[in-house]
């Protein structure tokens, strides 16, 4: 770790330091319950726009729960309840009158296991635009090509757009799912351990893709893999037992953790 000079650390910090960035997603005193289980405890965080924020922590720490609060996917679970404020661009997404269905168009999600729909590659990408009212073939063609190109998949699939998406490899399926998410033009993309079902090569490609995507989207990624957090994320949040223990730039978090629990976790003392 000593091979990084102080100057290098300084430059990186000034590029990505929280103080210089506009928050896209802000949680204020967020508490979340599944029935009687207190899954998130007083979470306060501000995740900057057009950056990658990684959520790390041991299994069951609440990182995935927090991720699924951001697009209100937890609403589907009976007996779940959120208190506090969760703001996207300054407006509370849990305020009365907010339609979670409309919200999810702006906050996309990529799941742990690739989940292409049982339809053609083309129809998978066109699915979102179609349900949001785009019907013209020419318009859909453009969206499909653009999204597949952005997810580095176009060259691999351009000759078999009408084939079933389920015939693709796991890594290709996951890139397809990312492309499908992009097709509805969200502002935020949430990723729930997107590489945990993939081999190292496919994982590397997804990470490259994430680096590319942050120029256009704000990305929040849950990962079990601390190397991945270090490679892919500008910011890292460490969760434990439902609490946000520490939030900092990734470099700072891994070089100089402020909390003992963070240090123990990132040095592999438990996990």
């Amino acid at each position: 770790m000593l091979q990084y000079s102080t100057a290098m650390v300084q430059t990186v910090l000034s590029e990505t330091d929280e103080r210089f960035e506009l928050p896209k997603i802000r949680a204020e005193k967020v508490d979340f319950h599944y029935g009687s289980f207190h899954a998130l405890k007083d979470v306060n965080i501000a995740m900057p726009s057009h950056r990658v924020t990684a959520l790390i922590g041991p299994s069951g720490c609440g990182k995935s729960t927090f991720l699924r609060c951001i697009n209100r996917m937890n609403d589907l679970i009976d007996g779940s309840k959120l208190t506090g404020k969760l703001l996207v661009d300054g407006s509370d997404i849990y305020a009365p009158g907010v339609d979670p269905v409309a919200l999810r168009k702006h906050i996309g999600m990529v799941f742990q296991k690739p989940n292409p729909f049982p339809m053609s590659i083309y129809d998978n990408i066109a699915y979102g635009p179609r349900i949001h009212g785009i019907r013209k073939k020419a318009e859909l063609d453009i969206i499909v090509e653009r999204c597949l190109s952005k997810s580095f998949l176009w060259n691999e699939v351009k000759d078999k757009l009408s084939q079933s998406a389920l015939a693709l490899s796991g890594g290709q399926q996951q890139r397809l799912c990312i492309a499908r998410t992009m097709a509805v033009d969200p502002q935020v993309i949430l990723m729930d351990e997107p590489c945990s079902a993939l081999d190292p090569v496919a994982t590397m490609r997804i990470e490259d893709l994430i680096a590319e995507l942050k120029t256009q989207f704000t990305i929040v990624i849950v990962t079990h893999n601390m190397q991945q957090a270090q490679r892919a994320a500008d910011y890292t949040a460490f969760f434990m037992l439902g609490e946000l223990v520490e939030f900092n730039t990734t470099r700072e978090m891994f070089l100089n953790p402020q909390e003992k629990r963070t240090m123990d976790y990132i040095s592999g003392r438990f996990g």
Binding site: Y127, I131, V184
Partner: peptide, 20 residues
């Protein structure tokens, strides 16, 4: 995750049911 995938794209439950 089929249903969740559709919902995450902004489909409502009826659309997720019918289309996926």
């Amino acid at each position: 995750n089929m249903r969740d995938g559709a919902l995450a794209l902004g489909a409502n439950r009826t659309e997720a049911l019918k289309t996926v």
